[in-house]
Design a binder for these strands. Structure first.
Lengths: 241, 241
DNA sequence: TTGACTTATATGTCTAGACATATAATCGTA
DNA sequence: TACGATTATATGTCTAGACATATAAGTCAA
């Protein structure tokens, strides 16, 4: 999701891609509309099929169009309805801001999964889990509190990992790299425990990110991150309609 | 950001792409690492350069690698530090949920830009602006309130648009299609006015999305969306490390 | 009408070349 | 040593073909 437009170098395939993109984004070609066949674009632009194919392939990769064999290429409905969110680990986020990262383990518990744990992890039966509570800070100021559950049947090494030294997010990132995730963003007001951990008032707003992570159908971890709502901000820039 | 892996059809370029992706995501090739030159991959896989070029181009488009002429291709640092967020317009979001969309204009004001307006729009001097307050509902239940400022020097048509009939987000989407945006997510507690508009208690948590939109350096609009924090949720799924 | 078979066709992938272009590295000079 | 010009090289784009493959559409029989 780059911010720069690459209209600076009007190579042919980029021009073709931009032309089509424009018609889609202006609504001239609405969702469902069949865009010209490759051979038609070849005729219109006087180039080889590989060139228009490259333009169309990129539009397909960007989810702007859908290509179907024998049928043609079609304008897709405007992206997934709600949101796409990516978050690197908090340490990286804080150090990237040029602030000093601090980490503190508040609690760690190894236990047989309770019904609530299983529900949270989205599994029917789980053996043991690790529950971790910790705090991240930037320049000594509380930045976020983390409340995490790791499924030990998926990540047995987590039972012996030293989460007092390394944040569980970083640890998992290095030990369980290829994952899929689902995010939910919401807002709550701070209860006693949260208020104390974040050093804010009870009843103050908090931004909540729940992340549920798995790898090829195996649940790995469920984490809830709480940020002070009036100070922390998730900022994103993107390009598109 | 599709959830499905396309490992089902191991065409050659996909295999090459997947091989490289795997090494990156397992950390075997860390950020900054130079991946093999095209001619080396050509030799290793015994294919033409166009085939490895396609694999590498897609990895570049996905921001996993960076390609530099004469220098080679390099593993990028894990994506932008914080967040990437895409949101279609609220009407589409609600109808996609299978719920009845409702819209209501609360207020509309055309005025010369105040200092606060200019600050919010990020412009030094602006002529006139339209300020709009409206409410979106799903199945007759308040879903979000919207507080928007449109820069009339960029979008003069907005002065005469009938925002009682069409939500400003949809209107803009159809009249000013190709835009860039910046999002900020935060949390607040509802004040009197917000509480009334969303039919929640004063002091209840609200999820806030501030979106600032421009097109080729021209400011278009600044909008603040307030969602009831305990009910509404932004959900996202993604694949990646 | 329905289902099974065939066919036509648009996309998917790939090749073996070509020339363009940005730039890292080298070389030469002040 | 520092700076400017030259060169080598990896990527960027493009061509004119080829065969593969999924599938919409048409055909035909039950």
């Amino acid at each position: 999701m780059s911010l720069v437009t690459d209209a600076d170098k009007p190579t042919l395939y980029k021009r073709i891609r931009a032309d089509i993109e424009k018609r889609i984004l202006t609504g001239e070609w609405p969702p469902g509309h069949r865009i010209p066949f490759e051979h038609e674009l070849v005729a219109r632009y006087g180039c080889s099929r590989m060139t228009v194919n490259k333009a169309l392939s990129e539009l397909a990769q960007a989810d702007l169009i859908e290509r179907r064999r024998r049928a043609g290429s079609f304008v897709r409905r405007p992206q997934h309805q709600s949101a796409v969110l990516k978050i690197a680990d908090i340490r990286a986020e804080i150090t990237a801001l040029g602030r000093a990262y601090g980490y503190e383990l508040i609690g760690r518990k190894l236990r047989a999964a309770t019904a609530a744990d299983r529900d949270r992890l989205g599994v029917k039966k789980a053996g043991k889990v690790v529950a971790i509570t910790c705090r991240h800070s930037a320049d000594k100021v509380p930045f976020a509190v983390e409340d995490r559950l790791i499924d030990l049947s998926s990540v047995p090494d987590a039972a012996t990992a030293d989460f007092a030294r390394e944040p569980p997010g970083s640890w998992l990132l290095h030990h369980v790299p290829w994952t899929e995730a689902e995010h939910t963003i919401s807002a709550i007001v701070a209860d006693d425990r949260t208020a104390e951990a974040l050093d804010i008032a009870v009843g103050a707003p908090c931004l909540v990110i729940d992340r549920y992570t798995w790898r090829s159908a195996r649940t790995i971890t469920a984490v809830r991150l709480l940020y002070p709502g009036d100070s922390h901000r998730l900022v994103a820039r993107f390009k598109g309609g």
